[in-house]
């Protein structure tokens, strides 16, 4: 599944959040969106999934304008993992993951849906908590439930909005490995907004650095994560070391006193 984002702009009211963002995604690719708070990562992901309607620009799914694709059809092609669960009334993990089958079934779930759900529950190691209510779980467990729901959707494109932020380091690696495994094995693609630059560096095929609704840098992790780019995007001095496997590892050191975009020098 090819995804082309063309000159996308979006704003809340008169406040622009995305200013003409364009990029492409090909199958088998993991793309990480990084950037400071409020840079437009979540908004971009929601625009791609048609949860928000962009003010201008287009999203092409296999060359077809996403606005012309019916919602349910789009839901079979794309899955979205939000930042957290917002269930008004708690239901069990099993039934939550089952909702991911909705785009593929009619008004009731079938036996094959049940099997599919059990498969993803096992894939994310949720067996032991499958019959618990989601409000009884920890933040990290809830995130794994939401990822499981998205995987039950069997999408061609996975959109994750800081979906691993509450996971412990072990599960963070495990979930990322599961996702990379699935992306390569099924030849699907994943777009993830993420704050942990080291995770992005390790697993992303490509990194898109956003700031103030614009793409500052786009490329493989070893090209994107340079000390200059990190100052430019975050205003932070960092040590970037290239590991044995060729991936950069980033250690933030201190805030860069002179924020490049503000041009205000803080003097005594």
């Amino acid at each position: 599944m090819r995804l082309n984002v063309q000159n996308l702009s979006f704003g809340y009211g008169r406040f622009p959040v995305l200013k003409g963002v364009s990029f492409n995604i090909v199958p088998g690719e993991i793309v990480c969106l990084v950037g400071p708070n409020g840079s437009g990562k979540s908004t971009l992901i929601r625009c791609i999934d048609s949860i928000l309607q962009p003010q201008s620009g287009k999203i092409l799914v296999n060359g077809e304008d996403s606005r012309r694709i019916p919602r349910q059809e789009l839901a079979r092609q794309m899955a979205y993992v939000p930042q957290g669960i917002q269930q008004a009334f708690p239901i069990t993990v099993f039934d939550t993951v089952m909702m991911g089958r909705r785009p593929h079934s009619s008004w009731r779930s079938s036996e094959s849906d049940v099997n599919k759900v059990i498969e993803v529950i096992q894939l994310l190691g949720l067996d032991d908590i499958a019959m618990k209510n989601c409000n009884e779980l920890s933040g990290g467990q809830q995130q794994r439930v939401m990822i499981a729901m998205a995987l039950a959707q069997e999408p061609d494109i996975l959109l994750l909005d800081e979906a691993t932020s509450a996971l412990d380091i072990c599960y963070q690696l495990e979930v990322m490995e599961t996702l990379t495994g699935l992306v390569k094995e099924r030849d699907i693609s994943a777009v993830m907004a993420i704050h942990d630059l080291n995770i992005a560096s390790r697993y992303a095929d490509r990194v898109i650095m956003l700031k103030n609704g614009e793409i500052i840098m786009e490329g493989p992790p070893e090209e994107s994560f340079t000390e200059e780019n990190i100052i430019k995007v975050y205003g932070v001095n960092a040590l970037v070391k290239i590991d044995d496997d060729g991936k950069p590892s980033i250690v933030p050191v201190r805030r860069n006193k002179i924020k490049p975009d503000l041009k205000i020098s803080i003097s005594g």
């Binding site: 929601r46 949860i51 794309m78 979205y80 917002q86 909702m99 909705r102 785009p103 008004w107």
Partner: peptide, 23 residues
């Protein structure tokens, strides 16, 4: 009753419901 499954999805948040193909 026919819409009861969709109702579950609706109460799980508008964004989730939209991304699951619900209008």
């Amino acid at each position: 009753f026919w819409k009861s499954w969709d109702l579950n999805i609706l109460s799980s948040g508008d964004e989730t419901a939209k991304s699951l193909g619900i209008n």
